[in-house]
Design a protein around this nucleic acid. Structure first.
Lengths: 166, 166
DNA sequence: TACAACTTGCAAGTGACTTGCACTTGGGGG
DNA sequence: CCCCCAAGTGCAAGTCACTTGCAAGTTGTA
């Protein structure tokens, strides 16, 4: 059997990560290994960028003869559980719907979102250390522990920009 | 008549800004001067932190004998218009509801949100220049213009933390 | 293998917004 | 200063993403 780097030590590209790895991760996080969870982790791990819930369902459907075997409620509950287990992250980029991305194996990063078409691109090299220092040092009387941060950029992507200048 | 610094040149504390200033701002942004818009600007300008829509309505109600003279739809439409005019900002901190804050007269800043009680505190001294540099320089093939960014921190505030340790 | 705890499907419910439409109003033009 | 209409409003119905209650099905462990 081929040996796979443990996901938590990897960088990018999970294209061929076998389901066994996801089961391993789920077990490690003390969550029951349910098919829907494995499917979600597989779908998200193959994406470079955050996916909306609808997209997640579509991708799952594609790998199951075009029909998702799971109820939507199940998907939502699963995403909630995976988020609590910190295996996926819920991303705050759109006030109208939720986006999720895999939470392990990738460099710390953030996103740029096109305010015109919604295209999402990664921003790597986050200065998160500086950010946390900043958060801790600037008039924060009531907070000592910062658990996480969200850093999102918004702009117009080149294709959309060109379209407008026609 | 007392002279007031133009809002756009001010820093913090609008506690006593007269409605005339808000009318001035609205006119300057070529939006009709409607009472609801003035009310929203007044309420938000008196707040140190972002307010949810419900809170905005409650504050407006307080200044009108306890009953808001505006329909909820009007509030939502107004907030949308004020956001487009860049007089208020919609803040992405809660996937379940919208928060708004005044968009002028304050130093560039961000927020820390308590994931337990929702308390919001400001983070000043943002390294926004570095952030934009970061966004522009890190593998961004498709974006050249970054219009805005959202930087939010999440943690547990001291009161909530104490509560848990009882 | 038995069972308790956890999950799921289904269907109904929730809640934050949005929209269609007829009525009103702010403010520029005459 | 008044007229007029684009822009804004109230009301009520609608939408849509998500949540929940419950009965039935799974998982993992004892």
């Amino acid at each position: 059997m081929k040996h796979y780097t443990h996901p938590l030590d990897m960088e990018e590209a999970f294209d061929d990560m076998p389901d066994a790895e996801f089961r391993y991760l789920l077990a490690g996080h003390r969550i029951k290994i349910m098919p829907v969870r494995v499917d979600i982790l597989r779908v998200l791990s193959r994406e470079k960028h955050p996916l909306s819930v609808v997209s997640i369902i579509e991708k799952i459907a594609k790998s199951h003869n075009g029909i998702s075997p799971y109820n939507e409620a199940t998907i939502y509950r699963s995403l909630e559980g995976l988020t609590k287990a910190k295996l996926v992250n819920r991303i705050l980029i759109d006030p109208d719907r939720s986006y999720y991305e895999i939470a392990f194996g990738r460099k710390h990063h953030h996103h740029v979102v096109c305010t015109s078409c919604g295209e999402i691109e990664d921003v790597t090299g986050c200065i998160s250390h500086d950010l946390h220092d900043m958060a801790r040092s600037s008039g924060l009387k009531k907070f000592r522990h910062i658990e996480s941060h969200s850093l999102e950029f918004f702009g117009i992507c080149l294709p959309c920009n060109k379209e407008k200048n026609i």
